[in-house]
């Protein structure tokens, strides 16, 4: 049994169809399909992508979807976000993008977006768009190792799957140790060596930007196939 995990369709229906086709052709026994946000984007097909997700065809897994950065921007535009102003949207794409996104994702889709989960926690895995610190936080292999560790430890999991960076990678913390000594008022200093259990951060790539053929242990860079008993 496998999980298929992907992110970043960004309203690109053709890319999503290609992804589903690739999944079918893999002939793997897919137990669950997780889409880690950025389902919609500033493309007119966004609503069609939502419709396609809501209506899987016979034999296709029913996708489990969480909110991504673009969904967060939509909620902010519709005054349902956690912040009042779409500052990040303006900063990255300019003010005109607000109108483009508003037109691409109609009000009818907002309720569906609003009810999406922030992430999924299953079998020592957290599947999320950004991190538990925020939907906009992108972890990459260049992120300081202690920050990656912190994000893993915050959620109490040893496997973190995230989609914000758009990069596909498999980052394995294979070994770690540190000496620590604590001195308190009434206790003599106590020293110990702390070792780190193996932990893993997986960037699940991005479906909507590019769909190229495999290079890793998966069918496309945008999906990771994980044995469901890690």
């Amino acid at each position: 049994m496998y999980w298929a995990i992907a992110a970043g369709i960004e309203g690109n229906l053709a890319a999503y169809e290609a992804f589903l086709k690739d999944l079918r052709q893999s002939r793997l026994d897919i137990e669950a399909l997780y889409l880690l946000g950025d389902i919609v984007g500033p493309r007119k097909d966004s609503i069609k992508v939502i419709d396609r997700i809501q209506n899987p065809r016979p034999g296709e897994p029913e996708p489990q979807v969480c909110q991504g950065w673009w969904e967060d921007q939509c909620l902010i535009l519709h005054a349902l976000g956690r912040t009042g102003e779409p500052t990040q949207l303006f900063d990255r794409y300019g003010k005109a993008m607000a109108k483009t996104l508003w037109d691409a994702v109609p009000r009818a889709a907002i309720e569906w977006i609003r009810n999406l989960d922030f992430g999924f926690s299953e079998l020592d895995c957290l599947l999320i768009h950004g991190t538990s610190m925020g939907v906009d936080e992108a972890l990459t292999p260049e992120t300081p190792v202690m920050t990656i560790l912190d994000r893993l430890q915050r959620m109490g999991v040893n496997n973190l799957f995230c989609g914000r960076s758009g990069q596909a990678f498999d980052y394995n913390l294979v070994q770690g140790s540190m000496q620590t000594q604590v001195t308190m008022l009434d206790r003599p200093p106590s020293a110990q060596t702390v070792t780190l259990p193996a932990k893993r951060l997986i960037g699940v790539g991005n479906i909507g930007h590019a769909l190229v053929r495999p290079a890793m242990c998966c069918t496309t860079p945008a999906i990771i196939l994980l044995n469901s008993k890690p």
Binding site: N172, V174, G176, M178, L196, M216
Partner: peptide, 12 residues
């Protein structure tokens, strides 16, 4: 002190 982390990275 003596903090050490070994990482293996595989990229697409």
């Amino acid at each position: 002190s003596d903090g050490l982390v070994k990482v293996q990275v595989k990229r697409s």
